[in-house]
Nucleic acid binder design. Structure first.
Lengths: 133, 133
DNA sequence: AGTTGACCTGGAGTGCACTCCAGGTCGTAG
DNA sequence: CTACGACCTGGAGTGCACTCCAGGTCAACT
């Protein structure tokens, strides 16, 4: 199957402008063109875009995604380096998750504090016995 | 205790420039000054900076941090709104963690593929094909 | 007295990742 | 035949979050 740029944008979740941008900066090999010169994205193109958006979500900078894309073009000889990039990225994602987990704990603590304040305002807090609202 | 801007930068993990920048954009109330007019950060200032960096780590935009900072200045009446901001942020952090977890799974899958390729190259697992990266 | 180093100010510059624009070409619908 | 909408190109503009700079003050050391 092949897809117009609008369809590719819809399926990848990227904007049309971003698709052309990714092509310009060589994240994406130039897709085929139809007889009128319009881009015709293949399923392979879409799969690659799907993977790219995953990498992007992990916070990988475009520079590194470009490196990975460029290695891919160099075939099997680059597999080691590509794997190393992914392993490093996995490490950084795991780290980021842990960091976010820590932030979640801080948020929970703060939110609980606000809840305690609400309780206190309602006079329900233990130690304030005899005062019921 | 009070701290020079260099010391505050060291303790908060922010740069000196960023500290002044945060003050300019009203993320941080202007700290006290010493006799020579130099900033003298208090422990409260540092605690607030610590919380700000947590919020930043969660990806909260400066705009929202400013809103939170501004509410804080309006005292207890703004507690409800502040709590709501934090609850919303907690939701978004939890979502982000889940998203990253999904990316981690994709990375693991890809990395495993590379490992399978390595096995194949070593001739340990003949008959395996269809390894695309 | 002079030099050094940390700090000050207002404002300009940077890098990233898009996003938008003007002006033009196609192919189909009315 | 013309109007329309989707697409094309090269290039300019945007928003975010810093980061850097020039030129100046001040206290402490030599």
């Amino acid at each position: 199957m092949s897809y117009s740029i609008a369809e590719a944008a819809r399926r990848s979740g990227l904007s049309i402008d971003t698709l052309r941008y990714y092509e310009r900066i060589k994240l994406l090999d130039p897709p085929a063109r139809d007889t009128a010169g319009r881009r015709a994205y293949s399923d392979d193109d879409l799969n690659w875009l799907g993977f790219l958006t995953k990498l992007r979500t992990t916070g990988m900078p475009i520079k590194s995604m470009r490196e990975y894309a460029s290695l891919r073009r160099h075939g099997v000889a680059s597999a080691g380096r590509r794997k190393a990039l992914l392993v490093e990225q996995r490490r950084s994602v795991a780290e980021r998750i842990a960091e976010l987990q820590g932030c979640l704990d801080v948020l929970d603590y703060k939110i609980e504090n606000y809840e305690r304040v609400e309780q206190k305002v309602l006079g329900i807090e233990p130690g304030m016995e005899g005062i019921s609202a």
